[in-house]
Amino acid sequence: MKNTSQINPLENEAIYIFREVAAQFEKPVLLFSGGKDSITLVRLAQKAFYPASIPFPLLHIDTGHNFPETIAFRDRLVKELGLELIVRNVQDSINQGKAKEESGKYASRNTLQTVTLLDAIEEFKFDACIGGARRDEEKARAKERIFSVRDDFGQWDEKNQRPELFDMLNGMIEHGQNVRVFPISNWTELDVWSYIQKENIEIPSIYFSHTRATFLRDGLIWSADDDVVFREEDEIVEDRVVRFRTVGDMSCTAAVLSEAKTIDSVVEEIRNSTISERGARIDDKRSEVAMEKRKQQGYF
């Protein structure tokens, strides 16, 4: 038998946070996008409650513009682990007239997710939504708490946040409020990749190098496989060897040129990378304060 002396402080912190969620809330849910961060969350949740199963469902807000590989992966994971999955569709919010499809060259459904998410929170009366956001991703997220209280409208009041002292997490809320919980707040992109490598966690194939029909816009590489991403006639489609470093909505996630076919080579690539992860996310390029604005409206 061994001891736990070679501990990973970040992993132990995340497990602690998951257990606090299960103990402090009546109806938690894990926001699952099929991306590497939420897949990592699932593994951490398994660890937190073993040998019992994860005591809350997963919620996927499906933009309808997901990579097919991600959806296939999601369904397989849920089946293998025997988890409960709830899916709510942005398309339904659009059909109901609650959300308006963006138009034009940079149209994306990323922002529209917020409407569907807030509706789902109300429908199921979720009081805690666990997400894979990390503080190193972006400036506004750097100010985010581990337990982040949202009002009846799902809004983030960044100037009036609860102080978080030592390990103590205060999840006391009023009826109608909910808490966004970020167990991997303190992880960096490299921490996540190193963890996936060490734990041998399976992730969708689009994270690894593959040949894809693509086109160039604003110096970024976009997938041209389908009808989701609007393409001008003069934007020429070419096969490129790429992988995705972050997996969001197809309309806002660009690929990077990469030969990394294995997790080892991906970790090596991230270690030597000189571009930030969200550099390939057009949702943050819209303006310097894009994330802060979205968070105030209820984005996670």
Partner: peptide, 8 residues
């Protein structure tokens, strides 16, 4: 066998 400090 042993749980060290700060392990969950």
């Amino acid at each position: 066998k042993t749980a060290s400090r700060r392990s969950s």
